[in-house]
Computed example of a mutant assay.
Amino acid sequence: MQVLQGAAAFSVPDGKPSHYEEHLRVPDLSVGTYCIPVGGKDGQQPHTEDEIYVVVSGRGWLEAESGSTDVGPGSVVFVPAGEPHRFTDVTKDLAVLVVFGPAEYSRAGAPT
């Protein structure tokens, strides 16, 4: 067992539009917290791994090729590998637990 300290806590360094922090990485999955402040921008690109987003706090929209949805505490959304998506219209500081399967970048290598 491993307790993931700091997982799902809102944290964005000053001046950053968003922040991602990984808490766990094993071959078959990785877990991290993605935070976007009110008015912040989500600049992520499609991933080569499947993702599950669990919204812990905040409010905004998740837009994807297959549709869009309002998200808030308790929202759980699956985004398949390769589907373009991003959080928009963040009206309350957003903290999202992100689960990648398999681990983020394991199919494509680390980002450049």
Rank of each mutant, 00 (worst) to 15 (best):
P37Q: 10
S75A: 14
R25M: 03
H85A: 09
T69P: 00
I36Q: 04
V55I: 13
G43C: 09
S75K: 04
R59H: 15
T88K: 11
G60S: 10
E83H: 10
V79I: 15
L4Q: 00
K16S: 15
F10R: 03
G67S: 06
A110Q: 05
G6C: 02
V55G: 02
S66E: 09
P27D: 11
V76E: 01
P27S: 07
S30R: 01
E83P: 07
S57V: 08
V54E: 07
P84K: 12
G6V: 02
A108W: 00
G40Q: 13
P73F: 07
G109H: 00
F100S: 08
D70R: 13
G72P: 03
V26M: 10
G72K: 12
E83K: 11
A64H: 05
G40R: 13
D50P: 05
L4N: 00
E49Y: 01
T33D: 07
G6P: 00
G43H: 14
V90K: 04
P80I: 10
D50F: 08
G72T: 12
L4P: 00
I36D: 03
S75D: 01
P13W: 04
V99W: 05
V31E: 06
V26W: 02
V79M: 08
V12F: 04
I36N: 03
S18V: 03
D89N: 14
T91P: 04
P111Y: 06
T88L: 13
G74T: 11
K92D: 15
V96K: 07
T33K: 11
G39F: 11
S57I: 06
G60N: 09
K92P: 03
V71S: 04
S30G: 07
P37H: 08
G39L: 12
A81Y: 04
F10W: 02
F100Y: 14
D50C: 05
V3K: 06
K41A: 15
G43D: 15
Y20W: 08
S18T: 02
E22A: 09
P27F: 05
P27Q: 04
G101W: 01
V77A: 03
V76W: 00
E51W: 02
A7Q: 00
V99M: 11
G72L: 07
G67L: 05
S66P: 02
H19Y: 11
D89A: 14
L62A: 13
G60M: 09
S68Q: 14
D42M: 12
T91D: 04
A7D: 00
T112A: 15
E21Y: 01
A95I: 06
S18L: 05
C35H: 04
Y34R: 12
H47G: 05
S11T: 13
Q44F: 14
P17D: 12
Y53D: 06
A9Q: 12
F100I: 05
P73Q: 11
G109E: 00
V96N: 07
A108Q: 07
I52H: 01
I52W: 06
K41W: 13
Q44I: 15
G82D: 08
